[in-house]
Simulated assay, not measured.
Amino acid sequence: MPLPRTPALTADCVVVDQDRGVLMVRRKNPPFKDYLALPGGFVEIGEAVEDAARRELAEETGLDAMNLALVGVYSRPDRDPRGHVCSVAFLTNDARGEARAADDAAAVVWIKDFDGVEIAFDHREIITDALNLIR
């Protein structure tokens, strides 16, 4: 039996520092070009979602996540304008390295106050859920 047509799968990573600042990347490409977003991207065939989250974090920011905790699964069909994309989001507070923009990230920034900040996709919801986990 052939596999059914299903949503695409991504992994996102919420990196939190000691002061509860969240690492964000400024997107180089559409959709949401120039908006802030969580580091993340599409899971490759044969790759575990945890490995995809670590890979995307390293590719976009140069950081290595030691431990990951599941934040949640985000599957609203309209969350990505490209089509139905489900994301598995993870939290880490022990990423190592020096944050720098790379790959499809134009910049990296640490954000503590999200008022008035334009955030891509449903990443504001993911950040809120992640910060609630550590409160």
Rank of each mutant, 00 (worst) to 15 (best):
H123D: 14
R54A: 03
A107G: 12
L63Y: 11
A65L: 03
L9M: 14
A120N: 07
A102G: 07
F114I: 11
V73Y: 06
W110V: 06
H84W: 13
V22P: 00
R20S: 08
L57V: 10
G97F: 10
Y35R: 12
E50F: 06
A58M: 12
A52F: 11
R27S: 04
A69H: 11
V71D: 03
R27Y: 01
V117N: 05
F32Y: 12
K112T: 15
E56Q: 12
P77C: 05
V43E: 09
L133M: 15
V117M: 10
T6K: 13
L63P: 13
W110M: 05
V14R: 03
C13Y: 00
V43G: 03
C13Q: 05
N132R: 15
L63T: 09
K28I: 03
N132L: 13
I45F: 12
M1C: 07
F42C: 02
D104E: 07
V25S: 01
L133N: 01
I45Y: 00
V14D: 02
N132G: 06
G40F: 02
T128I: 12
E56F: 13
Y74C: 10
F32V: 04
V85Y: 13
L70A: 10
L70R: 15
A106H: 13
E59C: 12
A65E: 03
D12A: 11
E60L: 15
G83D: 01
M66G: 13
A58I: 04
V15F: 03
F114W: 14
T6Q: 07
D103A: 14
V15S: 00
E118C: 13
P4V: 11
F90C: 09
E56H: 15
R54F: 07
R124Y: 07
P2G: 02
K112Q: 15
D122E: 12
A99W: 06
R82I: 08
L3K: 08
I134S: 05
G116M: 10
H123K: 02
Y35D: 00
D19N: 08
N29E: 08
A52N: 07
D94F: 13
K112P: 04
A89N: 12
D115H: 09
E60V: 09
T6S: 14
W110F: 10
Y35C: 11
G62W: 13
T6A: 06
H84N: 15
V88A: 07
A89R: 03
A120R: 11
